[in-house]
Nucleic acid binder design. Structure first.
Lengths: 229, 229
DNA sequence: GTCGACTGAATTGTTGACAATCTTGTCAAC
DNA sequence: GTTGACAAGATTGTCAACAATTCAGTCGAC
């Protein structure tokens, strides 16, 4: 077996398609309530319908799309209350992880973290929303992985993914991206300096802006007099 | 549409099959490393192979089975280290939830909880491991749901499910079942009495026995000199 | 006697076609 | 002008056959 990972198994393709759709949702190319037709996506992304089907099922499980039997899938619109609840759990988990990171942090954590921080900063400077999104994800993954508990990391990532649909407001906003960039720099500093209190506080602060921006946007745009959605 | 939930969609059947297999794993009918052949399961459970396939994929995501490409699925054997990590996160999350339950607890929470506690006690008395397992799950779900954050509850349930494969030791043991029964009673008491400190302590204690029993069993039975598994 | 290659059986992975279901547009009746 | 039924189109849900892969046992060479 000389290829190894070379051959693209179905499972890998499903993950790839799910990731592509996720990005399109996060970056606001696919808007809430927009229909996701299996056959159309299959053709556009160059895969079989079965692959798209599984990818949509995955995104439904994660909470990014909504699937109605015999009717198809649409990009899900997150309720403000739901977003608040998710962020409150995120805060607890990320705090927990930050408290368990051994300090002073190991160089093999710090070095890649600095590299990712820089990549994020470059993407922000270039106005590359997609690059910033990807670097941002990897930055946080690397950071929290340092806590030593992969299951905790998995939960944190899952929750972050759940609210990806609520990030199209901030994911492309230069102001928010610049703020995130600066906060990342501060986190790295706190890690390097062994200042746990600051690190934990930064992690907590870091969550606020995107949550508040989304809630404000939804309540301004979607709430109709007398209605709940 | 006069039937509503009457018609059995594929998604429902997948969930059902997954739940059946999960129970068989928890109760020790299916042992670690035991093969799970799609066609055989499809015939035994009276569904199409495609349904079994998706159910196995679901159980793989959850962490109860392991699937190797072109080779099939087997019941997964959890590493002691992994079990420790999962239980440590469970402890944190369940503590968090217990701390957020409004006290004194609402009657519409307490009443069903007492009913489930009794059902569990009856199953234990009757030596009905499956009944005890089901009542136990619903008891904890009802308890933690009272914290008001469905996403936190979902995480707690997911983690509990992840270690279901590690529960075949305690799920059928009269001693452990009796202990769980008594602890449930104490939890209800603490809830009714508004004693949050006791409730939190009980939730934490409650996790210990099954974790320790599993780790002890695995390390006694499966560790070979010089090997890691 | 041991090692390596080969063949056959078992199992999963993939595909395309068909059936069931829902939505939209049209038209007639009130 | 509005409402209801009806038909056509679009979309998902289901299935069974076929292809690809892996494993176990056997046979032959050294």
């Amino acid at each position: 077996m000389p290829d190894g990972t070379l051959k693209a198994q179905t499972a890998d393709r499903v993950r790839t398609v799910a990731a592509m759709l996720e990005e399109e949702i996060v970056l606001g190319w696919l808007l809430p309530r927009e229909r996701l037709v299996e056959e159309e996506l299959a053709e556009r992304l160059g895969v079989k319908r079965h692959v798209v089907r599984e990818a949509l099922a995955e995104l439904e499980r994660v909470g990014l799309v909504e699937r109605i039997p015999n009717r198809g899938a649409v990009v899900r619109l997150l309720e403000p209350e739901e977003v608040r609840q998710i962020y409150s759990v995120r805060e607890a988990l990320e705090t927990l992880a930050a408290e368990q990171i051994p300090l002073p942090v190991a160089p093999e954590v710090l070095a890649p973290l600095r590299a990712l921080q820089q990549r994020h900063a470059e993407a922000v400077a270039a106005g590359d929303a997609r690059g910033a999104f990807r670097a941002n994800i990897r930055f946080h993954e690397t950071l929290f992985r340092a806590c030593g508990n992969p299951h905790l990391v998995e939960l944190i990532q899952g929750l972050a993914q759940k609210v990806h649909g609520a990030r199209s407001i901030t994911a492309a906003s230069p102001g928010h991206l610049a703020l995130a960039r600066d906060e990342h720099a501060a986190m790295v500093e706190a890690l390097a300096g062994g200042d746990r209190g600051r690190l934990v506080a930064l992690c907590r602060q870091h969550l606020g802006p995107s949550r508040d921006a989304y809630i404000a946007a939804v309540e301004a745009r979607f709430v109709r007099p007398g209605g709940t959605a």
